[in-house]
Design a protein around this nucleic acid. Structure first.
Lengths: 335, 335
DNA sequence: CTGAAAGCGCTAACAC
DNA sequence: GTGTTAGCGCTTTCAG
């Protein structure tokens, strides 16, 4: 049925070892090499990677576990990871966990069974806490979220700084009642809240943070709440949000309730997706170096494979504040 | 180093065959089963999938080759594919080709070496033409693009109908000079152009189609061209575009040149991405049943694995027209 | 129900 | 340089 190295050897009149050497990089005479290559072409032979892996104990496979590939951040990272992997002659197995610790556990098990060369992983908080006891025998690079543990290499955005930059910008533009809307599941949101809080204090402003589920609907409902008649909250004149879904939710709410941006509410958030340029007056956002994050993660992985016992490293990348109309100066937005 | 089935057998005081049976579904007495399970837990044993695959000749792996996972259509499809795959106990290997036939060829080779159980593939036109000579010995399901050949199962959108629906809608809203902007690389664009053209004729309108590279910039430049002083083109009062990048480009051009949508130019396109609801008055688009497309592809694959020699099938799914403000009635948009 | 043994396709010693 | 051979870790006959 399927043609094996034996068939090629037979056809070329050589031993399987010689065929293997031609495929790999052993010393073979030009004459035999030619014969083998001919036989390979004639038979349409393709090496069986399972056999090769079993024998060589190298899977040449890297795992990529993220919450949801549809999250544009992970989409972009996955592209970078895939590019780097295939450039290094490796394959990538993609796994979506939907932030579900059970699925994470299951996929970690899979990674072990695949004997992956390494793993790029964006864990939930829950799993992050247990990771040290997972007993993984391959290098892991954490992305997007990272524990304090320093047990694994990681590459993350400087979330505090980025959030603080957003607050600083809003403050400089003249806004004073700056609310913060954060997702309630991820560690990034916690860090971004930290930056928000510190910056608010630093600027002499009163922090006003809310944690909501990371869905557009949740943000929409929250904003709607501010507008409700009986609402006792002091209405913010600006809001910063910790991810693009919440950003979307605030825009939706503004449209629904006829709020003008930034006239009635200035808005700034994370992730410079293409559409943020097109919505309303354009949305001010922190741009994450998504491609660099993926590349950095792969580099950390390769370096650790090189030197298994070197100290763990945490690569912290900075975001860029892309200023657009949604945070126009306060005075201007009132006229 | 790594614990194998032998170690487990030793620890449990049984043969490796028994361990294998416990892991699989052989008949084993409760007593031994318990002993084995205990030994598995104690040793932290994880089966080696390469070995299992080599022996059983089942890779339990499906390949997914798309042009770019960052294309939201493919992102969504990949989620559906991954879900279905893991539900069936299979893994998926993700490959991005950037519409590059060389990379496609290379990945097809990889798929053979992995001995994948099946492949979900969105080929370029070039590769589509050669596919019959590729000599793949696993089932393939084409998505998004499909040849006339009927050589492989496929699942596609009814592009003609969808494009025609868009034209029909614009016509019903009172627009008459309806331009069409299509990507110049994909077969979907060709089909959508077909639907556009036919519908224009049917409504007694003059087709006005342009093929441009599938980038936002190309669409932007095209629209800018219409506005140029020396331009001899009759300016359209509406435009339909064949994909979301072009859609974005038209919106950008409109913003840049102060064109109001739909006042100066009505706009309709493909792919109901979240942001289309938030841009300007909301964009009228064809919503593709992305998840269903992924599921249908996996179903076709499974069914073919079941009955290898049944006739090939082409599943054609319909899009839904999501009407928003960008195609408000012509009269209304002029007041 | 259980164990012994063959071998999946390949690479890597080891001989010549 | 080249061939022979021993497994990599597992499943699956085949005996018992």
């Amino acid at each position: 049925m399927t043609v094996s190295i034996k068939d090629v050897a037979l056809k070329a009149g050589v031993s399987v070892a010689t065929v293997s050497r031609v495929l790999g990089s052993g010393p073979v005479s030009d004459a035999l090499r030619a014969r083998v290559e001919e036989a390979v072409a004639a038979t349409g032979y393709r090496p069986n990677l399972s056999a090769r892996r079993l024998r060589s104990q190298h899977s040449q496979t890297i795992g990529l576990i993220v919450s949801d590939i549809r999250n544009p951040f992970f989409t972009a990272v996955s592209r970078a990871v895939e590019d780097a992997a295939f450039q290094a002659g490796m394959r990538v197995i993609l796994c979506n966990t939907d932030e579900n610790p059970d699925r994470e556990a299951m996929y970690l098990r899979l990674m072990q069974e695949e004997r992956v060369t390494g793993l790029i992983f964006a864990p939930t908080r829950t799993t992050l806490g247990r990771l040290d006891r997972a007993g993984l025998d391959f290098p892991v690079v954490l992305i997007d979220r990272s524990g304090p543990s320093g047990l694994y290499d990681s590459v993350v955005l400087d979330n505090q700084q980025a959030a603080a930059a957003l607050v600083g910008h809003l403050h400089a533009q003249g806004y004073r009642r700056i609310a913060g809307l954060f997702g309630n599941t991820s560690t990034t949101a916690v860090e971004r809240h930290g930056g928000y809080h510190a910056a608010m204090i630093e600027h002499g402003l009163t922090p006003d943070a809310r944690f909501v589920p990371p869905y557009a609907e949740a943000a929409e409902a929250e904003v709607a709440g501010w507008l409700a008649d009986g609402s006792s909250v002091v209405r913010p004149d600006a809001v910063m949000v910790s991810n693009s879904l919440l950003l979307m939710g605030v825009v939706k709410a503004a449209r629904k309730h006829g709020l003008s941006i930034p006239g009635d509410l200035a808005l700034a958030g994370f992730d410079n997706e293409a559409w943020t340029e097109l919505v309303g007056p354009g949305l001010t956002v922190i741009e994450q170096p998504v491609h660099e994050i993926g590349c950095a993660a792969m580099n950390l992985l390769f370096e650790r494979l090189d030197v298994p016992d070197r100290p763990t490293r945490k690569v912290v990348l900075s975001g860029t504040c892309v200023v657009r109309g949604s945070t126009a100066p306060w005075e201007a937005s009132r006229v």
